[in-house]
Nucleic acid binder design. Structure first.
Lengths: 336, 336
DNA sequence: AGTATAACCCAAATCGTTTTGGTAGTCAAC
DNA sequence: GTTGACTACCAAAACGATTTGGGTTATACT
């Protein structure tokens, strides 16, 4: 913070204008002068003040992302992939990623978005875990701030997003279970206002319908995407007079919870009880037995999201902004 | 970005000075005036420009952290806990966390640190994965930028850090294995310039020495902390004419790789071959068999680190800045 | 009446860049 | 020897806040 463009200019006997233009690669600076400037800059360790530059240029060179904090903190490995993907892509574009955390759909969250947007702290925002009728989307659209979303909100989406084809994925999974002979298939959902819940649940229902299985609402439980809630819901399901023969978790973490509950009850997983999840986190590969899941390339998705947003921020036009990704059904021992 | 303090002042028929002071809670503004200002600010959605404020106040209200990108990208779940911990703590202090990524000990990394420090982009920096003779520590000390470190570098540390007592932890683990009757205990290390390698390896050697077991260098392999490298090293170890009866991974990820290799060879894990890791990532709980590991409370450590740094940045003095944490040996089925 | 005090408010300087709108000097062309 | 083009540079005005160092009233006290 000590050395400014002034110091540099004085040392070189040049005006700050020339120094600035030399470093920015303008054509109206003699090649020799530019070299002198660059060398001296390096020598005295000059680095333009971020704040000053930001103020003048009216851009922050940063992308924002707000991590949803879930109350019972069993951190979802999904987010490592997501964050590193974003981070790598954004770093590759010479921008920074600014993150903070707040409970979903809270006043605090609202305040955060407002502050970032109004104060010009970030040039663009990444959102995920979209909700039905998501105020964030409306707000960002209204304020004309650039953003991309993982998963589109309800209604038609006139903004760039990447969507994982959750209904189709879940349908595939149900289909697989039906083929294995299951008829009593339970579903542990998430908060009903989450788009991933809505879509995955719809896929589940569609799958049942196709197999001509009457849906039994007693086989539905509502969790909160944590391992613990998967565990609780599963115990409740397995205590039914007519328990399910298969349990689907709306995400892998809850399926892991189901696994734990089933083990506690001494069930033989894969034959007596099938368990499957969604996301394809690396944990699923190592469980006993390995967990059937719908894999989505989270790291790559995050990179792509970052890439789209960076293009928008830098004013480049992007060809194909919306993407639908088919999740891949990984059949493992947990479903026989 | 549209509405500035000017607009607000004009609308209120006040000077920008008064508006600024009203919002900042100075005493020389009439209570009624302050109320008017606050209300109108909310009404027209005024939020002070971050850049302008930063420039004038000479602080960034942000903490920086650079994520090390490992070449074969099997993302380490350790970092979810670490990042969410940092993020939650920093968010609670009304600062932002700025992250980017770069390969450890690269020119790019150096450039990143320099830029952040010289341009005043961040008020403080968190580092981890410290290295023996770590230039980052010297650089940050030299430039008088505030920082905290997870793990101290070599030499005496006249800066705040939190350290996990790795030598003691590893010694406990070796001790446990020896008690189980193992004498040929292999160690898969990491890059030798990493402090965690140095410490954990030392603990391993100490453990052997205490048990009066001669170290056999053929039982040492050097990995890179990824699952894949744990897998490779284990295959190499298990192909020895006299293979080890126990394998210790310098981190859990490599132990997971060992598990995979052992399974491929049809070994009965826990009795024929013991496997153990270090970190206590959640994956270890679900493997078949569950993995013995040394647990460290990563989330809490990160929060504490964030807390210390925030205090430093805000100029509060902190009582106890250095902490040594004892890892907890979780004995599970993978070691019998 | 005169002066001190408190309560409110403000003009202007400042932070460190980028950008606008120039100015000098040289050289070639007419 | 004036015009024009071109090269290399620069002074000053932004950008939008905070802060310094007052200034103006109104009230209270000699």
């Amino acid at each position: 913070m000590a050395v400014t463009i002034h110091d540099l200019a004085k040392k070189l006997n040049l005006s700050i204008t020339t120094v600035s233009r030399a470093l920015d690669g303008y054509g109206d600076v003699a090649e020799e002068t530019r070299k002198r400037v660059e060398e001296t800059a390096r020598e005295i360790g000059y680095e333009p003040s971020f704040a000053a530059r930001q103020l003048r240029r009216k851009r922050a060179d940063a992308i924002g992302y707000i991590l949803p904090t879930s109350s019972p903190r069993f951190t979802d490995p999904f987010y490592v992939s997501f964050l590193t993907g974003l981070c790598d892509e954004i770093a590759a574009s010479n921008l920074d990623l600014i993150i903070t955390s707040s409970p979903p759909d809270s006043d605090q969250e609202k305040h955060q978005y407002q502050q970032w947007v109004q104060s010009g702290r970030v040039d663009g925002i990444v959102i995920n875990r979209t909700r039905l009728d998501d105020w964030r989307i409306n707000y960002l659209k209204q304020n004309r701030i650039k953003f991309v979303s993982l998963g589109k909100g309800s209604g038609d989406a006139d903004y760039p997003y990447i969507e994982v084809h959750d209904t189709a994925g879940m349908e595939k999974l149900v289909n697989h279970l039906v083929e294995k002979g299951h008829r009593r298939i339970a579903f542990i959902g998430a908060s009903p206002d989450l788009v991933i819940h809505e879509d995955r649940h719809t896929g589940y229902l569609n799958g049942l319908k196709k197999a001509k299985i009457r849906t039994d609402t007693s086989l539905f439980r509502s969790g909160d995407l944590t391992e613990e809630s998967g565990y609780q819901c599963s115990h409740s399901l397995l205590s039914l007079p007519e328990p399910p023969t298969a349990i689907i978790g709306c995400n892998d973490l809850m399926a892991l919870g189901a696994l734990r509950a089933a083990k506690e009850r001494g069930l033989y997983i894969g034959t007596e009880l099938a368990i499957a999840g969604y996301d394809g986190i690396s944990e699923t590969k190592f469980t006993d037995p390995p967990l059937t899941t719908l894999y989505q390339p989270t790291y790559e998705i995050a990179r792509k999201l970052g890439n789209i947003l960076v293009s928008m921020v830098k004013g480049k036009k992007q060809e194909e902004s919306n993407l639908i990704i088919e999740p891949e059904l990984l059949v493992r021992a947990s479903t026989g």
